[in-house]
């Protein structure tokens, strides 16, 4: 009798968590399960099949979409991470005063993504962009072969919004690199560059990898910025997926589900690889 009372008491105590779990189950868990199961069913017969996935990797449209997204995101993430590394290092090395004026700049550019960003790029280097026209008028040809509205030309835009995100996430990692280490290594005859290669970067590795996976996920799921540049027919994963459900040409929703699952798997894969890398760098004993 007492145990029953105790159990009901525990369950009653648990009651306030219900709204949260209902929200999470109805709008996260169930939709995800239904999407995965739909990606594995046949459009016409409703039977279990892997065909939707094979279609994603064999049909040209989907293949190009996946490679476009991967190529843009990988290149943009890589470049953005390198720049973000130096920016974060500069903020860290120059101390508090520069941080005071540079942090607002970072936050500002983070909030500028989406429509404003694509608009600004069109204004600057689009077909009628004033920088392009001024350069042409002055007979300087560096932008002659550059086209913003191509899957290569759009990479600078992705790099642009990747840098502030990367730098903001890297900063805490830099703060963990102690000044004492630098002084000690200097006393032992290590140069500045040598310090970063042998001590600084290995210690930053976990932060670097974690940041990389976030910047990558952010870049591969970007919708708004590229939507305005390419329109709804763009061959990029998020836009293609969205278009398969709301476009005028009603495409197979099952294949759309398969593409969504592939997008999630790509993000997860990068995350897992970064986590393994983190663990390896931690095992080597570089983190004090």
């Amino acid at each position: 009798m007492r145990t029953i009372k105790k159990i009901t008491h525990r369950i009653l105590q648990l009651a306030p968590t219900l709204p949260f779990f209902i929200l999470a189950v109805c709008f996260l868990v169930l939709p995800f399960i239904s999407m995965v199961s739909r990606s594995l069913t046949d459009e016409n017969t409703g039977a279990f099949t892997f065909n939707n996935y094979t279609l994603c990797f064999t049909k040209n449209v989907y293949k190009v979409t996946i490679t476009n997204s991967l190529r843009i995101s990988f290149i943009a993430t890589f470049v953005a991470m390198i720049v973000a590394f130096f920016v974060a290092m500069a903020i860290y090395s120059t101390g508090l005063r520069t941080r005071k004026w540079f942090m607002p700049v970072m936050h500002m550019s983070q909030n500028f993504a989406g429509f404003p960003l694509s608009f600004a790029f069109i204004l600057m280097v689009g077909k009628q962009g004033f920088i392009r026209l001024s350069l042409e008028a002055a007979n300087i040809g560096i932008l002659k072969n550059y086209n913003l509205m191509t899957y290569t030309g759009v990479i600078p835009v992705y790099v642009w919004f990747g840098i502030p995100l990367g730098a903001l996430l890297l900063l805490p990692g830099f703060e963990a690199v102690k000044n004492e280490w630098k002084e000690a290594s200097k006393l032992l005859g290590c140069s500045n560059v040598g310090f970063w290669f042998r001590i600084g970067i290995p210690n930053l590795m976990p932060t670097l990898l974690g940041t990389l996976s976030i910047v990558f996920a952010d870049s591969i799921t970007t919708y708004t910025t590229s939507y305005i540049l390419f329109g709804g027919t763009a061959l990029l994963l998020p836009i293609k997926i969205a278009n398969m459900f709301s476009g005028d040409l009603k495409a197979s929703e099952e294949v759309g589900c398969a593409l969504s699952v592939i997008l999630i798997l790509i993000i997860l894969l990068v995350m897992i690889i970064c986590n393994i890398g983190k663990r390896i760098s931690a095992k080597r004993g570089v983190t004090a």
Binding site: T221, P238, C257
Partner: peptide, 8 residues
């Protein structure tokens, strides 16, 4: 993220 969740 956004698009995928909305679709599902």
């Amino acid at each position: 993220r956004g698009v995928v969740l909305a679709i599902s």
